[in-house]
């Protein structure tokens, strides 16, 4: 069984009497340990897809199963618990709490899962070590560079040992050099066995992942974009949901 199973998921907004289908009948499987990118232009529905996958939002139609739990009808509390224990988020704007220092920011998810202070500190330091930021543990986010802040955000996403990590344009706010460093950090995490979903509009970034899904107008595009095709060298045979560019 796949880690994530999306079946016929739609998300429909009512905007001034007009019906907007942000997601239209999407089905998708993500296996444990996969490193996958969701790509699409802005407004394509990729963020909506990520929000639904990440339990931040509920679909209007369809079913989602995440790590064996059906969540399409879950209550806000159950969704919060899922986000807390099974999901890690990395955002474009880092989204660190400015009033807390680095360690406290990393500890935040564990506070909501009720882990005691000693254990929290231990695990926060371990996560900071994984992103190579132990020496900045007492700094405020505002005292760090963008790349460092994003690494703190990654440490926060890792700290509760989630089943899946969602990264929404993680390099969008960084210069290309720092962005590369962040991407290689994700690659390393993937090699350690983490399941990572990278959401981006940039095909070059999507190119680092073995599997790519393109969203257009709320649907998974069956035809791969030409720019993507040229960079699709590392695609594996396991990606059945997407036709091979050579086919």
């Amino acid at each position: 069984m796949a880690l994530v199973e999306l079946r016929n998921v739609s998300k429909i907004y009512q905007l001034g009497g007009e019906e907007i289908r942000a997601l239209d009948d999407v089905s998708l499987d993500i296996d444990s340990g996969e490193f996958i990118s969701i790509i699409g232009p802005s407004g394509s529905g990729k963020s909506t897809l990520m929000h639904i996958l990440g339990c931040l939002d509920s679909p209007s139609k369809g079913t989602i199963q995440l790590d064996g739990v059906m969540i399409q009808n879950a209550s806000a509390r159950e969704l919060a618990a899922m986000r807390n224990r099974k999901i890690g988020f990395v955002f474009q704007f880092f989204n660190l709490l400015p009033k807390l220092n680095v360690t406290q920011n990393v500890e935040l998810p564990m506070i909501y899962s009720g882990i005691n202070g000693k254990e929290r500190r231990k695990r926060a330091l371990a996560a900071l070590e994984a992103v190579d930021l132990v020496n900045r543990a007492k700094h405020r986010p505002s005292q760090l560079s963008g790349g460092q802040q994003q690494r703190v955000a990654i440490a926060r996403a890792l700290v509760n040992d989630p089943r899946i990590i969602f990264a929404d344009e993680p390099t969008g706010n960084l210069d290309s050099h720092t962005g590369d460093a962040i991407l290689s950090l994700f690659r390393r995490l993937s090699q350690e066995g983490r399941t990572i979903v990278l959401v981006t509009h940039d095909p070059e970034i999507a190119a680092v992942t073995p599997r790519r899904i393109e969203i257009r107008d709320g649907k998974i595009a069956t035809k791969v974009d030409l720019t993507l095709a040229g960079l699709a060298g590392r695609q594996t045979a396991a990606n059945l949901s997407q036709p091979s560019p050579s086919a």
């Binding site: 990440g54 509390r77 618990a81 986000r83 807390n84 989204n95 660190l96 709490l97 935040l108 899962s113």
Partner: peptide
């Protein structure tokens, strides 16, 4: 509001 959103994203329940 943003901070609250962050807390909710990392698993804060409405009750918390």
């Amino acid at each position: 509001i943003r901070e609250i959103g962050i807390c909710k994203a990392v698993g804060a329940t409405g009750l918390a």
